[in-house]
């Protein structure tokens, strides 16, 4: 695995952990209290998916800070480098949207599979 993929995975870790937390923290509620897991959790997960997509579209993944660092250290930054930054940003955005879809999928799975258990 090369460098850049490793970094991308680092960025992906955060939303995945968020997903696991959402799913896991409500399990005790479901087990010990009156909480309709099947009704609420898919909706919450689905909404979170949308929010993750939203973050992916609006967050610059630290590009601004990176560019200001580049300027601060008097490094050169030409058009190609900027292109590259934009491209990487776009790829990250697509990845986040993909994760959003993963949320949707999980939501459907919870809704459809839970009654079978």
């Amino acid at each position: 695995m090369n460098d850049i993929n490793r970094t991308r995975i680092k960025y992906v870790v955060f939303p995945i952990i968020a997903l696991l937390i959402i799913i896991a923290t409500s399990i005790p509620l479901y087990l010990f209290f009156h909480f309709n897991y099947r009704v609420y959790i898919p909706i919450i997960v689905f909404m979170s998916g949308i929010i993750i997509m939203f973050i992916g579209a609006w967050w610059d993944f630290g590009a601004k800070k990176f560019i200001s660092d580049v300027f601060k250290t008097h490094m050169e930054l030409n058009e190609d480098d900027l292109e590259y930054v934009y491209k990487q940003q776009f790829i990250m955005m697509l990845i986040y949207i993909g994760i959003g879809f993963l949320y949707f999928l999980i939501a459907f799975i919870i809704y459809l599979v839970l009654p079978l258990l």
Partner: peptide, 17 residues
């Protein structure tokens, strides 16, 4: 700069000062 997360994502070449 490659050491930071954003740095390694956005630099396509060596960025060591």
């Amino acid at each position: 700069l490659k050491k930071s997360m954003a740095g390694s994502l956005f630099s396509n070449k060596e960025r060591v000062v």
